[in-house]
Design a protein around this nucleic acid. Structure first.
Lengths: 299, 299
DNA sequence: TTGTAAGCGTTATCAT
DNA sequence: ATGATAACGCTTACAA
């Protein structure tokens, strides 16, 4: 040992990997690291991965099938220890995940499509998030609630269900809650959502938008209609992405992405190290209400 | 070849690396991937790296010395092909970069501290960015310009120099440009910057803030003072981070971070593949003005 | 052109 | 306990 230290000996991880038939690389599939959402997952993932001596290599697919396949190929050739997916369930991605699994490489999805074959899954509790949002509004005295959801989005649907569930349980009369659906998670959609809502009989005193981007559009439309936020109508978003940057600052439901990344690493590492965990595990993480300036008591 | 295909042969990258004494891993040092700035670099870096068959592993130091050293160790043991630094020049980081270099692993900095030993460096042209901002304002007819810089920041200083340089060249009388310095790149600092500016004799009709976060604070303070943006005063930021999200949307100077990441990869790859490039290369990338809603013609 | 063998730096097995 | 040896899957140099 003394001689080793004197000579500045450093073990060669490559040689070790050749013998053990496994590198200490964890692949992370995401569409773009530029997305705050995925960046938070990546950070949590890398934190616990590196505390265990594993490295995470980012695989930004840009939703491109060829790129996804190339990453899969590379991960296979590099004898990756495990991989986590945080992407939509495209054909190519599904094939990649399957071939990884076929080669005994553990796979978990973190906020990824249910269509991706994987051993463990981590998701956020959308239902509870919606529930929280509605609860907040009702506690502030609001009775007429508008909800802007996104068509064909499971996440949006679950958020709406959660909100509707709370509203029903607490005696808010169904005719006073208006639900409209728009086509995408965008500022423009939030804007048109408000237009749709104001065409209804009951004008809401509070609006739940399916994410922050849409809430921004809501803010904009409301200003044009000369309604003040929060004095005239309260607004709440989801994600806690840039909610600190809007004026008024957005009240929003925050998603525990950093924690999700950590949990993903933990579960993956257990599989990698060969722990005898059960079959498929399904972890759902609680969401959290962040109250800022866009909501206030009714009247 | 036919047999290989039939049997589903896949070359083993580990074995190859053992022989060639070099893995196809590129390390990327950054404080946090959650920072849009670095995320953009990472994306550019990864894009060209993977087109050459290299993988990038993210090393989020959180500005922590131990973590930085651990990543350095790991990169050495993994026989990393090269590494790029995009972090401040702390003691530990400097030591890491030096030991990498000592082991013949190419190192480049991309928007990193000048104190970090490295073969090539990529930076954005702060001076030209400041120049562009001032030019835009003057072309809109503004004559009384306020500039809010950040103390002890080289970037901020260069931006101010660039702006001042344009102003001087184009006959704006020096007494009409007010420069104040605040302590940090934050919303609060932007806010106090405006207070400082309005204590001066010449009230500016346009304000240049050292980044978008500060510009947001400027917007806020101006609103409190019942000055409209852009009708009463024009505001311009730097970075193009969340400039699309403010109301009014911020005119800002965008930094080519994605491109910087691509260039970093290119230069690094040239070194890795043993091309005979010169000594230290110093690339400075042009910035770009993005005109949105917070600036308009004077009066 | 095709084939054979040595060696990269570990880990694991087997004698000592 | 300690030490020698084979094997991991590739690349490369050299021989046929």
């Amino acid at each position: 040992m003394k001689a080793a230290k004197q000579l500045g000996y450093r073990p060669n991880a490559i040689a070790r990997s050749l013998k053990t038939k496994q590198s200490r690389i964890i692949g992370f599939f995401l569409s773009s690291i530029t997305n705050l959402f995925h960046a938070r997952i990546a950070e949590g993932l890398q934190e616990v991965a590196s505390s265990y001596g594993y490295n995470v290599v980012i695989c930004c697919t840009g939703l491109n099938a060829n790129r996804a396949s190339a990453f899969g190929q590379m991960l296979l050739e590099s004898q990756a220890a495990g991989v986590v997916f945080s992407v939509p369930g495209d054909e190519a991605v599904i094939r990649v995940a399957q071939s990884l699994l076929d080669n005994d490489i553990p796979v978990v999805t973190c906020h990824g499509s249910i269509r991706i074959p994987s051993q463990d899954r981590i998701v956020c509790d959308d239902f509870q998030g919606g529930y929280l949002a509605a609860k907040h509004l009702v506690e502030l005295g609001h009775q007429r609630i508008g909800i802007i959801g996104v068509k064909d989005s499971g996440t949006s649907a679950r958020r709406i269900q959660g909100a509707a569930s709370f509203l029903k349980e607490h005696g808010i009369v169904p005719s006073r809650v208006s639900i409209v659906e728009v086509v995408s998670y965008s500022t423009e959609s939030g804007y048109t959502g408000v237009k749709l809502l104001s065409a209804r009989d009951e004008k809401p005193s509070a609006i739940i938008a399916a994410n922050d981007l849409m809430a921004l559009g809501v803010l904009e439309c409301l200003e044009e209609m000369e309604l003040r936020v929060p004095e005239d109508v309260s607004v709440i978003g989801f994600d806690d992405s840039f909610a600190e940057m809007t004026r008024p600052r957005l009240t929003t439901v925050a998603l525990p992405m950093y924690e999700a990344g950590q949990v993903a690493a933990q579960l993956l590492l257990e599989r990698i190290e060969g722990k005898d965990v059960g079959e498929e595990r399904f972890i759902t993480l609680p969401e959290r209400l962040v109250v800022r300036e866009s909501t206030t008591v009714y009247r």
